[in-house]
Design a binder for these strands. Structure first.
Lengths: 343, 343
DNA sequence: TTGTAAGCGTTATCAA
DNA sequence: TTGATAACGCTTACAA
C-alpha cells in the first residue's frame, strides 16, 4: 500500500504478470475476462493502491469525467441546492462537478460558454434557469459536443434534455388558497421579464383568479427582479393602490420578504392586514417573521434527477432501467403569513 | 474558422509549416521565438479556432488545471461568496473550479478527501472553515501533492497557505458598540464546539467586556450550531435569564435572526427591548426586520486572495510581484438592531 | 531559434 | 480470453 498514488497501469501489469490491456479490462469491468486473472489483478491493484489517472483516461477516451453547472441565477439557496442534488447523483462515480457562473447580460455570453465547453471538453452540463430557457445556448452545447440537461419551470426540451417543475399549477394552488381564505383583492409580484418562471407563475395566478371569477386590475401586477429590494419596491407600489390588496402573491420568497418589509414600514402587520404567499421555500421562508406560506420547489430532487439523466448509461453499478422522472410537483407549504382578510 | 474545436496541435503545425514544438512554444508564450514565426502560427491558430486539449496538457505536465473547493460549511451565502471570489481570481486563466462538499461527521472524511485528491489529481484546493482548521487535513493535502490554502478566522498556517480574518477584534468592536450604547448586561450566542471562529468570536466578546470591567455570568453564554433554529433556542435560554440581558451578541447572522424570532415570540421588540448584533453580513442581515447591525466579513476578497495565492506563479499575464494579503479586516456595519437599553 | 524523438498513462484495434 | 502495438494531444529533453 504505497502512500503516493503514483503507480501506473504498467506497474500493475508487470507485477501481476499480465498485459496493460488486461489491467484496463479489469478497471473497466470488461465481461470477457477469466475470473482468476481478474482476481489476481485486483489483488495487485489493492496492494499498490493503484488509482487510474483520469487525465490519461480522458485523453484516450476523448471525454473527461467532469460535469459542469452553468448558471446565472440570483438565488444562492437555489444554486447551492442544485449543487447538492448534482453531487448526490455523482457520488460514488468518477465524475466531479465544475461550476461556471455566467453573465446573462454580457453580449459575449454564448461565445464565452462555447469557449468554456470547447476548452474543458466537459462530459456534459447542467443548465439552470434563467439561462436554461435560452434555446441558442442549448444549440451551443450540442455543437460543442457536450450533453446537457436543462432545468426549468416548464418543459423546455425533450425528456432526455430537461427536467421541469409545474410552477403554473403550483401558483394556481397558492392563489386558490388565498381565495378560499376569503381574499378577493389579490396582487401579484411578478418575476422579471425574460424568465420563463415569471411567465408560468403569472399564468398560474391568473388562471386561479379567472376560475374564481375575479378580475385582476393592471395596477395589482407589479414586476420585480427576484431580489429582495425589488420586493420592497413592488410592495410599496401594491400597497399604494386603492383600495389596497388584502393579499399578495410573490413570485419568489426573497421578494415576499421584501413585501413584508414594505408592509411593516407602513405599519401594516402580516397576516392581519396583509396575507402573503411566496415561492421556493428557501431558508428565508422559515427565518422571516411571520414564517412564510410558500410553494416548495423540489430543487434538490430535480437536480439529482437531471444529473442522473446526464449520466444515463454511464454508471456501472446502477440499474440502467430506471428512467428518471422529468416532471416534479411543487407543493404548497402553509405557514403563518396567510389569514382571512379583516372585516 | 471551424465550428468544432477538433483541430490539434498537429494540424496547426502542418498548416503553419512548423513543428509541433514550435506551436507548443507559441501556446506557452516561450520567449525564445522568432516574432515572425510566432505571428504565422498565431494566424493559423486563429483561423483554425484551435484550442489546446487540456487533458493532453494535463497528462504531459503531470498536473491539471482544476482547483477544488473542499468545504463543510453550513452557510449557503458564505459558500457561494467563496465560489464567487475564487472564480474572480481564475477568470481569464485556464483553471476551472471543482466543488466538493464533505461530511465533517464522517469517520472516513479524511480518507474520502485523500481519495478525491489522488483520483482527480487537482492542482490545488481551497479549504473553508470549519474543516480548514483541521491540521490533519492539511497534511493529507500535502501528502497527496495538492497545494492548498486555508481560510479561517485566525491565522491557521503560514502566509503561503492561509488567509485569515480578524474575528476576535471585530467582535470586540461590536461588543464595545453595545457597551457604548449603554448596555451592561450582554449575552453571547457562541458558535459550536470545534470551530475556531467560535473560539475567536467568544474571545473578542470577553475581551471587550473585560476591558469595560463587565462581568459575564456563565448563564449569559449559550452555545449554538450556527443554524437559525439554534439561535431561537439560544435566544429562549438567554431571555429566560433573570435579570434579562438587554443586548445579545450572536456569533453569526443566522442565529441572530433566530434570537430575534425568540424575542418576538415572547412579545419583546428589537431593538427597544433587546439589542442584537450579528456576524457575517449575509443577505439575512438586510432582509430581516429590523435590519441587523453586524460585522461584515470580507468573504469574497478573502476567497479571491486565497485563490490567487494558490495560483501564485502560474498566471502568465499577471504581475507576479504582487503579494496577496493574508489578513482581512472585518468591519462593523451599523443598522437598526441596536439601541440604548430601556429606562 | 527551431526540430526530433521519447514519453505522460490510458484505451482501441486487431490478431493470436 | 489475452496481448502487442498504435493511437490520444501535448511537453520535455536534447540536438541541430
Amino acid at each position: 500500500m504505497k502512500s503516493e498514488g503514483k503507480s501506473t497501469i504498467n506497474d500493475v501489469a508487470r507485477i501481476a504478470g499480465v498485459s496493460k490491456k488486461t489491467v484496463s479490462r479489469v478497471i473497466n469491468r470488461s465481461p470477457l475476462l477469466n475470473d482468476e486473472t481478474r482476481a489476481r489483478v485486483e489483488k495487485v491493484i489493492g496492494e499498490l493502491g493503484y488509482v487510474p489517472n483520469p487525465q490519461a483516461r480522458a485523453l484516450a477516451l476523448r471525454r473527461n469525467f467532469l460535469i459542469g453547472l452553468i448558471h446565472d441565477n440570483p438565488n444562492a439557496q437555489m444554486v447551492l441546492g442544485v449543487q447538492q442534488g448534482i453531487l448526490e447523483a455523482i457520488r460514488d462515480t468518477d465524475f466531479a462537478l465544475v461550476v461556471r457562473p455566467v453573465d446573462r447580460g454580457s453580449p459575449t455570453m454564448l461565445d464565452d460558454i462555447r469557449g468554456f465547453l470547447e476548452r474543458q471538453r466537459l462530459f456534459g452540463v447542467m443548465l439552470l434557469p434563467p439561462i436554461s430557457e435560452n434555446d441558442a445556448l442549448a444549440r451551443v452545447c450540442r455543437e460543442a459536443g457536450a450533453r446537457y440537461v436543462r432545468m426549468g419551470s416548464a418543459k423546455l426540451d425533450d425528456d432526455d434534455h430537461a427536467v421541469a417543475s409545474n410552477d403554473r399549477e403550483a401558483v394556481a394552488a397558492a392563489t386558490r388558497h388565498l381565495i378560499e381564505a376569503g381574499h378577493r383583492r389579490i396582487g401579484l409580484v411578478q418575476g422579471p421579464h425574460g424568465f420563463r418562471s415569471a411567465v408560468e407563475r403569472r399564468a398560474g395566478f391568473e388562471m386561479a383568479m379567472e376560475e374564481a371569477g375575479l378580475k385582476v386590475p393592471r395596477s395589482l401586477i407589479v414586476e420585480g427582479t427576484y431580489r429582495f429590494e425589488s420586493g420592497v419596491a413592488a410592495g410599496d407600489r401594491l400597497l399604494d393602490a386603492s383600495p389596497r390588496p388584502t393579499a399578495i402573491v410573490s413570485s419568489n420568497d426573497e421578494m415576499a420578504a421584501g413585501v413584508v418589509q414594505a408592509a411593516r414600514q407602513r405599519g401594516l402587520s402580516v397576516p392581519e392586514d396583509l396575507s402573503i404567499v411566496g415561492f421556493d421555500d428557501t431558508a428565508t421562508a422559515t427565518h422571516m417573521w411571520p414564517p412564510l406560506t410558500t410553494v416548495r420547489w423540489p430543487i434538490i430532487p430535480m437536480a439529482r434527477a437531471a444529473a442522473s439523466k446526464l449520466l444515463a448509461g454511464t454508471i456501472e453499478g446502477e440499474d440502467d432501467e430506471v428512467e428518471e422522472p422529468s416532471l416534479f410537483l411543487s407543493t404548497l407549504i402553509r405557514r403563518a403569513s396567510v389569514a382571512a382578510p379583516r372585516e
